[in-house]
Amino acid sequence: MSALLEVRDLDKRYRTRHGVIHAVQGVSFDVREKETVALVGESGCGKSTVALSLLHLIEHDGGRVRFEGAEFDQLKGRREQELRRDLSIVFQNPYSSLNPRMRIKDIVGEPMRTAYGTRGRELVERVREQLEAVGLGPEHLRRFPHEFSGGQRQRIAIARALALEPKLLILDEPTAALDVSVQAQVLNLLRELQRRLGLSYLLISHNLATVESIADRVLVMYFGRIVESGTVSEVFNDPRHPYTRALLDSVPSIDPSQRHRLKPLEGDLPSPLRPPPGCAFAPRCARAAHDCTARPPPLGSIGSREAACYHPLGG
């Protein structure tokens, strides 16, 4: 299967008053057609920076991005516009990502109007189809965002993201702001849309159970780097990087008899202004040895997956 999106050595530095923050360092991954790849990690690990730089919402400082076989970064003007239609995003908070002063028909219709100049009755017809695809009836067309619940708003945001029939949808914490009962509806909808439209997803999430329920492959990020990647079942059932293990051990279980298995990770994230030498996880890692603090471990293959660790778990 060919890769729809190829990211190689992506790099992003933020220059701040206090110094340079290296937010993303040498991140490489592929997203293939009809595949869901999840990017997980704690706040500040760089996962949203990756998403935003893919969309050119921020400029990255190094590396390259190929989308549908074209060098996405070097495209200009019309070619760029065309290719960007195939890439879309759904944001975390449907309360802030929809303009409160626009009606639903304008929110969902705007991309089609801008990209194709669709107007009038045809536009309304297309918007109606888009809303129907996410399970919303035509009675909502003239309503405003405040008239909807969180789950419905997220459906509207998804309808807008799908308006130009993209091939790849970036989902930035799409259910984090929703109640559990609604979360399940949105996840089921995303799964159904993927089946029906042959979409690829890049899912950004810190909720490991959500990731497990819809993703095929997972990339674990820590402090700006990918530390482990592989299929969801491999990585979650048999993690090799101690950080992945620690993340999994931090998820509270609903089963009270599993209580003792909750093992918090000691310490805090290091300051991005003063990154530790070598492996960024070494100061919190029980397996850390001398070599860990010398040089950051490269991402190396272990069987069918990759981990960046000198002393991986298992095998």
Binding site: S181, L187, N188, E212, S213
Partner: peptide, 24 residues
């Protein structure tokens, strides 16, 4: 019961999630 069924749990894999119809 419904609330418990809607929660995705680690270890459940790619299962379809139950949800509560209607709204609060």
């Amino acid at each position: 019961r419904k609330l418990l069924a809607t929660v995705p749990k680690l270890g459940d894999g790619h299962s379809e999630l139950a949800f509560i119809p209607g709204q609060v």
